[in-house]
Design a protein around this nucleic acid. Structure first.
Lengths: 330, 330
DNA sequence: GCCAAGCTATGAAACGTTTAACAAATGCCG
DNA sequence: CGGCATTTGTTAAACGTTTCATAGCTTGGC
């Protein structure tokens, strides 16, 4: 299927057509001031021939590719997908394209993606990676999301600790006395882990000690269900408020409890995390802590693209907000 | 943040290091046979210097970029996200990179993405677009998914008609007598619309006339809820089987019905569409018709990348399968 | 042992840009 | 009105590859 398209017009063609030199065409294309008459001639010629700049020739000369690699584990998790959506949009607004690289949480794939990234001569990398021991190439501009590599590598995240606190405060001010904190564990203790820390701290500030459980990633539901089973007596759950480290987990939890006819928000209140809304209706799956995805994407893109005082190791932490979504009594 | 990295070694450097000519280095890099002694010298030198080929110089010469643009409306819909995931993986397996372009269903953005695509000199385009009147550039290799542009543009899809039939047959063999078909309408009558057609035809084949409703895209839940309200009498729904054109819609529907204490599969059986599993557990949200995403992605990529008899206007239609997921009695 | 034929490595041109150096034209001032 | 500074357009080199023509070797046949 792939064939060489009809030879595209080059600057040389435009120059000939407009009766000007190559350099003049270049200037017009790049918006460098040039006599009005020339500019008009060139623009007319370019339009007539349907000229478009060849990014590869330009990239070769300038060492700037106007493309950024986005490295992430998967697109099948709504949070990653939504983030990719925003990052792509943000890049596009600034005239950059997004090269997508998916690692499936595989450390080797992550490493490989950094190499490929170097080969591809992208201008930078925005990475969301969870494997340990990745040493990003020193010379490659990189910004991470939710992951502190340390050293001089900037990281953008939202305030996960605050998010956990907000969830706790909300549940307790809605009357919860016996809170449960559920989180999915990752190999690397990263930003998301601060959620439970914030939750627990806010509970203790009110003199309540929450139950806290870490679920293994990528495991079957069995152990999880088993845990819940053990905490149901006479059709009643031991907890009256649940905080889950993702919306998906909240939905899974509530779905399972439904088998016992325990429902939210009547029998138990539940707050999730991420705040990804339904595609068609814009409604939330559950009460949740909303991460400011668009702002996180913008921050990462700006950090990467703009030079400035933020250069070395600046971390950006954005605030979150609570959003009621039907699984709490507010 | 973006800075010119330390000058990367070029073929010239490798040639000097290995004491061979530029042409020889090129041959080794590209796997063209060359004397064993030379090959060894070049490979050693390349490794020593950490040489990586500059894709932009290569692209300039060869007019091949080894990158493909994936144009789709959004990543916030699980189906699009999962498809993007698979397409990226499939491209990566073949040594291609994926440039992501998101249109948000905006016809102008779609048009612009085709232009950008041409500028970027990608080798081809895989497009999932729903706007009317897009005239893809003749010279650009393109494959669509779920969208028939007509003419010589190949389209990959799954058998949506069959999927609808399977859903109907399943519901009826599980005892349903009063089926409802819910679908979300799009501007363009495309592949997904065949689902309801298949559903209705299979119902009629058994002498049953289903109720069929088309929901407007991007509207509030109100009219939809209103419709359901009207079909609930004395706490009982007029229908005993529901087919939804997406899993998300199925979930929304069942969630709403829960307010009336109507639940699946006891009170009503429900089959969705797409078959996107939960990220962590791999479980399905509901009983569903599963689209073979990985195969669709591979088919699209192969069609795009391989020349051959499939060249002109070949359409590929892959089969689907039914998957029980707790909202039916099987 | 010589010459033709066949390999194989080399050298140079070309891909479509950008950009620094250069030349031509303009305007200014003495 | 001439020369100098200034502006503005042109020219050519360079970016890092690929590729085609060329030249140097080797090999084998006579």
């Amino acid at each position: 299927m792939i064939k060489k398209g009809a030879a595209a017009p080059t600057m040389k063609d435009v120059a000939r057509e407009a009766n000007v030199s190559l350099g003049t065409v270049s200037k017009v294309i790049n918006g460098i001031p040039v006599g009005e008459a020339y500019r008009a001639r060139v623009e007319a010629a370019a339009k007539k021939l349907g000229y478009t700049v060849n990014h590869y020739a330009r990239g070769l000369k300038t060492n700037r590719t106007y493309s950024v690699a986005l490295v992430l584990p998967s697109l099948r998790h709504p949070f990653f997908a939504a983030l990719a959506d925003e990052v792509t949009a943000s890049l596009s607004r600034r005239g950059y394209r997004c090269i997508l690289m998916i690692t499936n949480f595989d450390a080797e794939a992550e490493r490989k993606s950094f190499v490929m990234v170097r080969q591809n001569k992208v201008d930078g990398v925005i990475a969301l990676t969870y494997s340990p021991n990745i040493e990003p190439d020193e010379s490659l501009p990189i910004v991470t999301i939710d992951r502190h590599f340390g050293a001089g590598i900037p990281c953008v995240s939202s305030d996960n600790y605050l998010g956990g606190q907000m969830a706790a405060d909300r549940l307790m001010s809605l009357g919860c006395k016996k809170p449960l904190c559920l989180q999915i564990g990752a190999e690397i203790p990263g930003e998301p882990h601060k959620r439970s820390a914030g939750f627990e701290s806010a509970c203790r500030a009110r003199g309540i000690t929450p139950t806290s459980v870490v679920l293994q990633e990528k495991q079957t539901e069995t152990p999880f269900h088993h845990f819940l089973d053990e905490h149901i007596h006479n059709g009643k759950l031991d907890f009256d408020g649940i905080f889950c480290s993702s919306d998906g987990l909240a939905v899974r939890t509530l779905n399972y409890l439904k088998r016992y006819h325990i429902r939210a928000p009547e029998d138990v209140q539940c707050i999730g995390y991420d705040g990804i809304a339904d595609f068609h209706t814009g409604e939330y799956l559950c009460s949740t802590i909303v991460q400011p995805l668009a702002q996180m994407a913008d921050a990462a893109v700006n950090l990467l693209l703009d030079e400035g005082e933020l250069s070395s190791g600046a971390n950006i932490c954005l605030t979150v907000r609570y959003q009621s979504g039907g699984t709490t009594k507010d």
